[in-house]
Design a protein around this nucleic acid. Structure first.
Lengths: 211, 211
DNA sequence: CGACGGATCTTGACAGTGACAAGATTGCAC
DNA sequence: GTGCAATCTTGTCACTGTCAAGATCCGTCG
């Protein structure tokens, strides 16, 4: 657990700027507290899950008082909501750059591996303020990207129903990503690159050649 | 929150009713506290998630003191571990009764819908005592059931690798179940029976006819 | 029949947490 | 510069999980 870089040692250096009376090495205003807290939160969530998240702990890491985070996120729920919104925005961007449903799936899995904390929080509605505006718009954006990826599948490939193909692809990618993150596929994947494994799954689902 | 002050007479203890003390509001011994707490916990988790679980609240619902649950489950973690173990045992039983990978998938999804609390907790390793003996054996049992379902797929259906087919099926079922429980497929599924939808997905994955 | 040991439950305490309110400090627009 | 709003602090409260020590009950063995 790397402590945050600043703050350093309190009174190790005797010959410091003389005009600063006694304490207060750190300025009253943190400068970028919001970002700081988000970063620390992502770190905690990534390796201990959202349940282990403590606002007071985040405040301590950032070197601010216990109530400081509340001003930026209002709530624990607010913090998680902000993370989820950021996650959906990132995912939307990632997916929109993909052409073809297969590639979108691969990107979905890659996103989950590169942003595990975001990914985990995004699918825990009970921890979020689902009516939050920023979250809702980011969600809509991601949903749109996904839908357009589904639409790009040639008609003859996708069975009777495009929507069904979308659900299938999403389920496959989401299930694979989730099981991967919860270490349920460690044995099955072994040394191989998870993305390659997933590509093989995608080809089982959409049997044709093509992109 | 409904106070489930049931205290339904446990039929487990045979000769009990004769000399039950009438003066006390509740007997010193609850009678079936472990089961009571488990039931209440499942209820809470099913509609608020594991994060909302409070041992003290469960104790209140069961009408016992705040420290009573600890004797049966040691920890919050212990309680969740017990639930997960029960879940894996149930799942193993369910899967072992299926013939064919497709049917196993359907049963997997059904299990998730019928036991959402179990299902959710089973895949949150960070909340569990993963080295717990009961949990590990139940997990092994379920894993065995799943593996045998994979093995039952005729060779010509399952592409190059049985293990890959297993991962595909598991990912598809797990993803579908997860997205279903988190209400991400409400629109896509609509009025249809989720099991029917999933059957269609299964047929996309394993294109042949057969069982 | 009676005592005793273990299982079950209670009471009390402690540290940690999220949330709120009220005050201190700072930067910025005017 | 002055005032104001954003930012951060301090103090507090109810609640939680966990531990320790005691009370009560049960089956069992003498």
């Amino acid at each position: 657990m790397p402590r945050s870089e600043e703050s350093a040692d309190p009174d190790a250096s005797p010959d410091r700027g003389a005009d600063s009376p006694e304490s207060l090495q750190r300025p009253y205003h943190h400068g970028d507290l919001r970002r700081s807290i988000l970063a620390a939160a992502l770190e905690v969530i990534a390796d201990q899950g959202p349940a282990a998240l403590s606002l007071r702990d985040l405040a301590r890491r950032a070197g601010v008082s216990h109530a400081a985070p509340a001003h930026h996120f209002r709530d624990r729920t607010g913090l998680l909501t902000a993370i989820a919104a950021e996650g959906y925005a990132l995912l939307a961007e990632t997916l929109s750059a993909a052409d073809g449903l297969r590639e979108a799936g691969v990107r979905y899995v890659r996103f989950a591996r590169e942003h595990p904390a975001h990914f985990v929080v995004m699918f825990r509605p009970e921890l979020l303020r689902t009516q939050d505006l920023e979250l809702a718009t980011a969600q809509a954006l991601a949903s749109h990207s996904l839908r357009s990826a589904v639409g790009s599948v040639p008609a003859e490939e996708r069975g009777e129903d495009a929507r069904l193909a979308g659900v299938a692809a999403w389920s496959l990618a989401h299930g694979f990503a989730t099981l991967l993150l919860s270490h349920n596929l460690d044995d099955a994947v072994g040394e191989r690159d998870p993305e390659d494994v997933f590509r093989a799954l995608g080809e089982m689902l959409f049997r044709s050649a093509g992109s």
